[in-house]
Design a binder for these strands. Structure first.
Length: 424
RNA sequence: GGAGGGAUGGCUGAGCGGUUGAAAGCGCCUGACUCGAAAUCAGGUAGAAGGGCAACCUUCUCGUGGGUUCAAAUCCCACUCCCUCCGCCA
């Protein structure tokens, strides 16, 4: 969430920022109104509590001296009743106040280009040549089925639309990618591995910004009020919810593999074929907790860590910068590395690297103590490194040969024990 | 699932109805001593909210939410989590 003081002191800046994200700025006025009421009420209650406390102490000393305190007791009792009434009023106002704060999106970083929606995102650079084939390249789903390593029909039978089954060398390739990516981030980029729970409570989902606004995007287990992990960002960032770290521990860099579950509620009819958009996928995620003054330097590193995965796999890609309208709720800035997919002759999102500044840290109450004892919010960042299913799709398409087999990228060969997946 | 025990500041741990936001120890910070460090000594050291230009003042918080009382860390109720034993179990 935003700093309430910022909204109070510079409401126009906040309105401008959230308008660029496509949010109705009237929420700021709603907030200011409730904020005023809240503060007036707190002041009133504090004064009355002070009165009650003073009188109460007086009663103590009267009784200690053996005097009669019945009269004064009665008046304190009355004050107490009044306080109770005001307190219940405050509770109502407080919950509206909190809810509004949780629904105001983060402001875009100054360098983010203005744009209404994804059509106005900006490609900032391209790396590597698009792969050229002396034959017409096949789609990853055609290749996967022909090699008998992806089974779409039976995935649907077991679970439903947008589920698939990996088999044999397909399953092994998925596993190899996960291990290799994690190892790369640990050994080469200095991350520490985390393996978090996949079922997540409401407080954690609120901490990173999935709730309260996006409940319908998540799988929810009603009996226990738990959510299926939508991205490792959630459990890993919430590792330090309600904690105060020390400055010396920062930056903290974690890498986590998780399965990710998404209902894809608004995506009917989009990417219906293949393994690009599914309800369950594997992802290796990088998360950083950093000092405010370092967060943009840290973001550059994070993006480079994601790119390194693509470079090592020999895949060509581009980096796209999200415009204000496509930033999402919690991010201040977001870059999406996109991998080249030969069948569609298109770049497809394979990672997403964001700086949330202190937006998540305020929600999740993640702070650190500076060397001179001040307490400040950390900045949180995260990025995929990479989405595993999409990486597999990219490998199948980019490394296909005319006879229908697929070359295994060199870095994965020792994990696979082979250099090629061939038709039987 | 059954029975019992517990939850206090960065940590350990006292307090069990009246200046107790909280003893003591550890840790950390500052100062003294020292060429420097260690040891020692002195002092400081929770978070949040509201008010004030500020110094500072006020309020809230001893797992969470209610209740009793003039007054609750302390008494009562519910919930959550942790520990021990029993049962079940991948």
């Amino acid at each position: 969430m935003l700093d309430p003081n910022l909204i109070r002191e510079m409401p126009d800046v906040v309105k401008d920022g959230i308008t660029k994200k496509g949010t109705d700025p009237s929420i700021v006025d709603d907030f200011l109104e409730v904020d005023r009421k809240r503060r007036d009420l707190i002041k009133k209650i504090d004064e009355m509590r002070h009165k009650r406390r003073t009188l109460s102490e007086e009663i103590g000393s009267i009784i200690a001296r053996g005097g009669d305190a019945e009269g004064i007791k009665e008046s304190v009792r009355e004050t107490g009743t009044q306080i109770n009434e005001l307190e219940s009023e405050l509770r109502n106002i407080e919950s509206v106040y909190q809810d509004l704060l949780l629904r105001i999106p983060n402001l875009p970083y100054s360098a983010v280009p203005y744009g209404k929606d994804e059509s106005e995102n900006v490609v900032i650079r391209q790396e590597g040549e698009k792969k050229e084939f002396p034959f017409t390249p096949r789609s990853h789903w055609e290749i996967g089925e022909a090699l008998d390593i992806i089974d779409f029909k039976r995935g649907v039978k077991i679970s439903g639309a947008r589920f698939y089954v990996l088999k044999g060398l397909g399953a092994k390739l998925e596993r190899a990618l996960i291990s290799w990516m994690i190892e790369l981030h640990i050994q080469k980029h200095g991350y520490t591995e985390i393996f978090p729970p996949f079922l997540i409570n409401r407080a954690s989902m609120t901490g990173t910004g999935q709730l309260p606004k996006f409940e319908e995007d998540m799988y929810h287990i009603e009996v226990d009020d738990l959510f299926l992990n939508p991205t490792a960002e959630v459990p890993v960032t919430n590792l330090y919810r309600d904690e105060i770290l020390s400055e010396e521990e920062l930056p903290i860099k974690y890498v986590a593999y998780t399965a990710c579950f998404r209902r894809e509620a608004g995506a009917a009819g989009k990417d219906t074929r293949g393994i690009i958009r599914v309800h369950q996928f594997n992802k290796v995620e990088m998360v950083r907790f950093v000092k405010a003054e370092d967060s943009y330097k840290e973001l550059d590193e994070l993006i480079d860590n994601a790119e390194d995965v693509l470079r090592e796999l020999g895949l060509s890609y581009q980096i796209k910068m999200m415009c204000t309208g496509d930033l999402g709720f919690a991010a201040a800035v977001k870059y999406d590395p996109e991998v080249y997919m030969p069948y569609q002759d298109k770049y497809v999102e394979i990672s997403s690297c964001s700086n949330f500044e202190d937006f998540q840290a305020r929600r999740a109450n993640i702070r650190y103590r500076t060397k001179d004892g001040k307490i400040r919010f950390v900045h949180t960042l995260n990025g995929s490194g990479l989405a595993v299913g999409r990486t597999m799709a990219a490998i199948l398409e980019n490394y296909q040969t005319e006879d229908g087999s697929v070359i295994i990228p060199e870095v994965l060969q020792k994990y696979m024990g082979i250099d090629k997946i061939s038709r039987k």
